[in-house]
Design a protein around this nucleic acid. Structure first.
Lengths: 185, 185
DNA sequence: ATAGCCATGTAACCAGTTACATGATTGA
DNA sequence: TCAATCATGTAACTGGTTACATGGCTAT
C-alpha cells in the first residue's frame, strides 16, 4: 500500500503527470522508494477511482495528452492518517548474502568478482548521494531548515551505502586472504 | 527466483522437511532471507517437479507424514551455477523513510513515537545477532574457520542493525530538538 | 540514421502475504 | 484449558517486474 501513499506525498508537494512522478521517483526519493512508470500509471488510475486524486487533461501539440494529477482533500486526509500510522521495518532479502553464506573455496574467484561488482555499484550510488548532499549544504540556513527531513532521509541513504562498502571491502579482503576476521573489530 | 536457491542451499547442507526448513530460515538465515512455511511448501513442490529435489515420506505415530527432502545431483549443478552468477543489489523500499520525508511539524509527535518503536525493534534484533556472534567466538579456531562465510553474513546483519540504530537515534534527536544536523558528522 | 526525451498505457507473469484448514501431543 | 510445537497444505489476493505497444520531436 505504500506506493499509493508515496504518490500522494509527491502530489501533495506539487501536482504532476505520471511522467513527472516517474522522474521524481527516480531522482528524489528513489533511494528509499522505487517505482516504474507502469506501476505509477496503474496506481494513479486506482487513486483516481478512489477519489484521492483528480486530473485535468492538457492537450499538447505533437505530443500525447498530459494528465495533470493533483491530490484531493480526501487524499490529503488519507495521507495524514497514513503518516501517523505505524508499520514494521521491511524484511531484508538479499541474494548476495545467500551466495556468501553458501560459497565453497572453488566458488571464491566468482564470488570475489561479484563482491567487487557490488562494491562498485555502491560506490557510485554513494557518490551520487554525496553530490546531492553537497547541493544541500550550499543552501542558506533557512532553506536547509525547510527541507531538513528530506535531507535526513538522504543521510540515511549515505550511511546505508557507506555501511555496505565497508562490509564488502572487509569481506572481500577476508575471503581473498582466506583468514579469520579479528575479534572485536 | 532466489527463494528456490536458498532452499537448495539449506538442503545441500542437510536434508530436511518443509517444517525443518521453516525453522532454519527463521533461525539461521532469517537475517538476510525470510520465508513463510506456505511459501516453502509451494517451492518444494515446484523444485520436486523440476527434479532439483526429491523426498521420502516418513510415517509418524500420531503426526502427519513427514516428507524428508534432499537435493538431487541436478539440483546441485543448478545451485553451483547460480552461486557463480551475478545479480544486482535488491531495491530498497522503506515506508518509514517516506514518512520522515513527508512529515510536517504537527506530525512530529507521532513520528517520534514511530522512530522509537523502530529503534526498539532494531535494538532487539541487534541483541539477538550479538548473542549469536558470542556463540561463534566460543568455538575453536578450526570450527570458526569452517563456518567463516556464514559468520560474515551475520556480521553484515550486525552492521546493518547498528547503522539503523545510529541513524534512528540521530534523526529522533534532531526532530525532537527541531534543529539542523551538524555538517560532516 | 539513431538515440534520447516526452508521454501514455495494457497484459502476462512472478513472488510474497494473508486467510483458511486440519489435528495430535506436550507443557504451564 | 490454553498456548505452543509438530506437520502439512490450498486459495485468494496484492505488489512488483517484464514484455509489448505507439509515436512525434530534438539533438548528435
Amino acid at each position: 500500500m505504500s506506493l499509493k501513499h508515496a504518490i500522494l506525498v509527491l502530489l501533495d508537494r506539487e501536482p504532476g503527470s505520471g511522467y513527472d512522478l516517474t522522474q521524481r521517483f527516480a531522482k528524489g526519493i528513489g533511494h528509499f522508494w522505487q517505482a516504474s512508470h507502469q506501476q505509477i500509471y496503474q496506481q494513479l488510475k486506482k487513486l483516481d477511482e478512489e477519489k484521492l486524486v483528480r486530473f485535468e487533461t492538457q492537450a499538447q501539440a505533437g505530443k500525447p495528452d498530459r494528465k495533470l494529477y493533483r491530490i484531493t482533500p480526501q487524499g490529503q486526509k488519507v495521507l495524514k492518517r497514513w503518516i501517523k500510522a505505524s508499520d514494521k521495518p521491511p524484511v531484508v532479502r538479499d541474494a548476495l548474502l545467500i551466495k556468501v553464506f553458501a560459497a565453497q573455496p572453488e566458488d571464491y574467484p566468482a564470488l570475489l568478482a561479484e563482491l567487487d561488482r557490488h562494491l562498485q555499484i555502491h560506490r557510485e550510488t554513494l557518490a551520487s548521494h554525496l553530490a546531492q548532499e553537497a547541493g544541500y549544504f550550499e543552501l542558506d540556513e533557512a532553506h536547509q531548515r525547510r527541507i531538513r527531513l528530506p535531507y535526513l532521509t538522504l543521510r540515511r541513504g549515505i550511511r546505508y551505502e557507506r555501511e555496505w562498502i565497508e562490509w564488502l571491502q572487509e569481506t572481500r579482503d577476508l575471503i581473498a586472504e582466506d583468514r579469520l576476521p579479528e575479534q572485536g573489530a
